[in-house]
Amino acid sequence: MPKVSVLMPCFNGSKYILKAIDSVLSQSFSDFELLIFDDQSTDGTFEIVSKLTDSRIKVFRNARNLGLVGNWNNAIEKSSGEYIHFLFQDDILLPGALESEVAALDANPKCSLCFSASCVIDSNDAITMKRRPFKRDRVLKGSDFARKTFRTHNIYGEPSNVMFRRDYWQKVGPFNDSLCYSPDWEYWIRLSLNGDVCYLDSFYSYFRVCNESTTNSLFKDKKEQLKRDEFDFVRAICSLDGINISSTDLIVRKLSLSIRNIAKRIYFSVH
């Protein structure tokens, strides 16, 4: 059993997927498996990845299209590592990421997950935003951090920026496939309510936002769907044991969401 399962769900990712794969294979930490799950791509993605010969890579092609979250859950079920780390088809794992995240979780057995500082990049790998929520490495009390991130924004970042323990996945269950835009955020909160959180103050992932990226296609021009997803997300979080959302939390979240939606529209209009 490998120490880490790096999971790469993909759909029509031919443009950037080899760069994403190379960023995993070049990691200093080598005790991992890289499992690629093609969700019935039509752009040659499966043909590209099926030619790879590295023994650490296993390629799967789903019998039918499972959708974004369905493919995530399918990937976890087929993995075997003690720790799980997603990497999306158009993102990049920076040098030292796996080694540092494994060391952090090994040193802090009560932590359910680990995340780091990260950068947003464009189609040419140019950095368009740096995200560094804290100024030093730290361990955060999970329940307090879960409430903080609910009130403000997804401080953890995208799946490509998080490593979590398999045994906690067995505790909290699969990603919520009823959520279109925030299943990862809801999942990080669930994990945090069951353990503490490690933060590493180094940049260990690049998250790509461009016309071809999954995130851009999800968020552009879908205002009504975003509203429905926000309602479903809040309802899911409020139903969780241990978070105790108050009316003040909901007011702060609404104000924060309004500000971030304005910033997001400006960002996508530029990029």
Rank of each mutant, 00 (worst) to 15 (best):
V6N: 01
V6M: 05
M8W: 01
F11C: 01
F11Y: 07
N12W: 01
N12E: 01
K15F: 04
K15S: 09
I17Q: 03
D22A: 13
Q27K: 06
F29Y: 13
L34A: 08
L34I: 00
L34W: 02
F37N: 07
D38H: 05
T42E: 10
T45R: 02
E47W: 00
I57M: 14
V59N: 07
F60M: 12
A63S: 15
R64G: 13
N65W: 12
N65Q: 14
G67H: 12
L68E: 11
N71G: 05
N71S: 11
E77N: 12
K78S: 14
S80R: 10
S80E: 13
S80T: 13
S80Y: 06
I84Y: 04
L87W: 11
Q89L: 03
I92N: 15
L93H: 13
A104W: 05
L105W: 03
C114T: 09
S116T: 15
D125Q: 13
M129N: 04
R132M: 00
P133K: 00
D137H: 07
A146L: 06
F150H: 04
R151N: 13
Y156V: 01
S160G: 10
R166G: 05
R166M: 02
Y168S: 07
Q170A: 07
V172T: 10
V172C: 02
V172P: 05
F175D: 05
D177P: 14
Y181T: 01
S182M: 07
W185T: 01
W185K: 02
S192P: 05
S192V: 12
N194V: 09
L200M: 02
Y204L: 15
S205K: 03
Y206L: 11
Y206P: 04
Y206H: 12
F207V: 06
R208W: 01
V209C: 06
C210V: 06
C210G: 07
N216T: 14
K222A: 14
E230A: 07
F231Y: 04
C238G: 08
S239H: 06
T248S: 10
D249K: 08
V252M: 11
S256T: 14
L257H: 14
L257W: 11
R260I: 13
R265H: 11
